[in-house]
Simulated assay, not measured.
Amino acid sequence: MKRLSCLVALSCALVSSGVAAQGLENAATFYNACKTPENLDLCAMFLAGYTSGARVQAVVSRQRELYCMPPDTTHKQKLDTVLSYMSTVPAGQTQPTASLVYKAFVRAWPCR
């Protein structure tokens, strides 16, 4: 329920800030929107939802997590990691945001 509330709040905030929530599914839109200061908190919330969903998926499917992010990683660190990764693969920005988030997290926090 908490996750749903966060996603609803994020969607409303993005729409009110001029960024369509559906647009964040496209990596180029996410990258451009999340580089602007007024969207940083909203984009960090998007990534918080992503990481929570990935963690739940691993637990429910009884799979190991695909990346091993330290538990004290801040939402800002997650966002910086994703934006940094996206800046190195501009051609990849035609992909869904989730696929580039996954690749950024695996590169930054591989499981050993």
Rank of each mutant, 00 (worst) to 15 (best):
L100P: 00
A48P: 01
A54P: 01
A20H: 01
L79W: 05
A28S: 09
M69V: 10
V101W: 10
Q63R: 15
T97N: 02
C43I: 04
K78I: 07
D80G: 01
P71N: 09
M45K: 10
H75W: 08
L47Y: 03
L100K: 00
D80C: 01
C111R: 11
A33N: 12
M45A: 13
N39H: 14
V59W: 03
V89C: 10
T73S: 10
L40K: 14
K35V: 02
K35S: 14
G23D: 07
T73R: 11
T51C: 05
A44E: 15
V82N: 05
Y85A: 04
T88V: 09
A58W: 11
Y31S: 01
D72R: 07
C34W: 05
F105D: 01
D41M: 03
Y67P: 04
Q57E: 13
L40N: 04
G49F: 13
T94G: 06
P70Y: 06
Y102G: 00
C43T: 08
R62F: 03
A98G: 04
G49P: 11
A58C: 13
A48T: 14
Q57N: 15
P70V: 00
P71H: 07
T94S: 05
A54E: 15
V106N: 02
F105H: 07
S87V: 12
A104V: 05
S87Y: 03
C43Q: 09
F105S: 09
T29G: 00
P90N: 10
V56L: 07
C111N: 10
Y50Q: 09
